[in-house]
Design a protein around this nucleic acid. Structure first.
Lengths: 206, 206
DNA sequence: ACCACAGCCAAACCTGATTCAGTTCAAGGA
DNA sequence: TCCTTGAACTGAATCAGGTTTGGCTGTGGT
């Protein structure tokens, strides 16, 4: 789709380690609150070594956001694939969106918290490229849901209401989970998925 | 409730002007992206004069967030007051939440984008106080909606489902509007309110 | 007439991200 | 083996912005 960094990582590359550490730090302590240098410490390299892999702290953040968006876009496609009805597609899509491991939860939170970063252009080349990429993926994800809603309306499974607002609202309902959900809390992931699915169906059902 | 700054503004105070300018800048360009000094410029004072009114840039942000939360909490209370049924209360509450001017829209966006700031403690005295205040108000708002849902369930107007998840979801649905809504766009504020109200009712109705 | 204090400023300061000017090391020829 | 190349890395500056300091000014209250 887009000419993305397919820079086949060298064997000694710490890029993945850095991303992992950054996700933990950004997710647990917040992006602005975590010192870029502390990420370096966590990985066991000097602060400036980070710049070998990422152009800046923000560039790293954008990379994390893109990666999460990518995951969520492809997971949607895979889940929906081959479902019989829009209702089944919806069930599958919700499962795909919410049935994720702890690292993805962090990534989802990071993504949500910094969505506004995608709004304004970046100075630097690579950052701007990554931003554009992320924006494209956002559009992709929104489009996925919009499409699903429209399919549902067309088939008569869903009530005929404004698809744009509906899809945005569905996305918000799903993502809102990460605001309060905590692993090992009163509600299991399973519980939440169940509740969310039913809520969404109540929203769209004809 | 809390011993808040009731520091009866002096007549020459530029506090309100600063807040207004900050809301515009933070809202349009984003908090991290706007230079604190540029807010001073906008108001027509030197950068350090800002510190006469706010302890820090973050303190100003927290103040804006608190103010928005305060508005939203009291608006809810006022709207719900004297409604006959939970359904009517819900209608009134949605109207109160969404029928706001452009400045409040900006504030709402600012609030949402920096909710995570409320999670971790602040170093400085006044910032921490303001943070606590904001947290209290968040609890207040969440409680308002939770209560409404529980009243609705008790009266039989709303279906008997998990009130916690329901109320959080409702809040998310309402606040999600600010992500895409733009004054003068295809959909009027009226349209959006109508759609949102119906969506919420579909969600909770017995 | 005087004082206290809100309101303001220029210059110094500090923190944390970023750049500079290299050094190390492993792999692939010659 | 020796040499070259480029990925991986580093300590020491640099830079940008927010914050602190110390002091000046003008106004309202007594």
């Amino acid at each position: 789709m887009s000419t993305q960094t397919v820079t086949t990582e060298g064997p000694r590359s710490k890029r993945a380690l850095i991303l992992r550490a950054a996700i933990e730090s950004f997710g647990d302590d917040g992006f602005e609150h975590t010192k870029w240098a502390s990420v370096a410490d966590k990985v066991g390299i000097g602060q400036t070594a980070l710049y070998h892999y990422f152009e800046s702290k923000v560039h790293c953040l954008l990379t994390i956001m893109s990666s999460e968006l990518e995951r969520s876009a492809t997971a949607f496609a895979a889940a929906v694939e081959g479902q019989a009805t829009p209702t089944d597609e919806l069930r599958a899509a919700v499962k795909a969106a919410l049935d994720v491991g702890p690292r993805e939860v962090l990534q989802a939170r990071i993504l949500q918290s910094h969505m506004d970063l995608l709004a304004s252009p970046r100075q630097s080349e690579r950052e701007e490229a990554e931003r554009q990429h992320a924006r494209e993926l956002v559009r992709q994800v929104e489009h996925n849901w919009l499409d699903l809603v429209e399919r549902g309306i067309a088939s008569g499974d869903f009530a005929d209401r404004d698809a744009f607002q509906t899809s945005h609202m569905m996305l918000a309902m799903i993502l809102s989970v990460w605001r309060w959900y905590r692993e090992g809390g009163a509600l299991s992931n399973e519980d939440v998925r169940e509740f969310t699915t039913e809520a969404l169906l109540r929203l769209v059902r004809a």
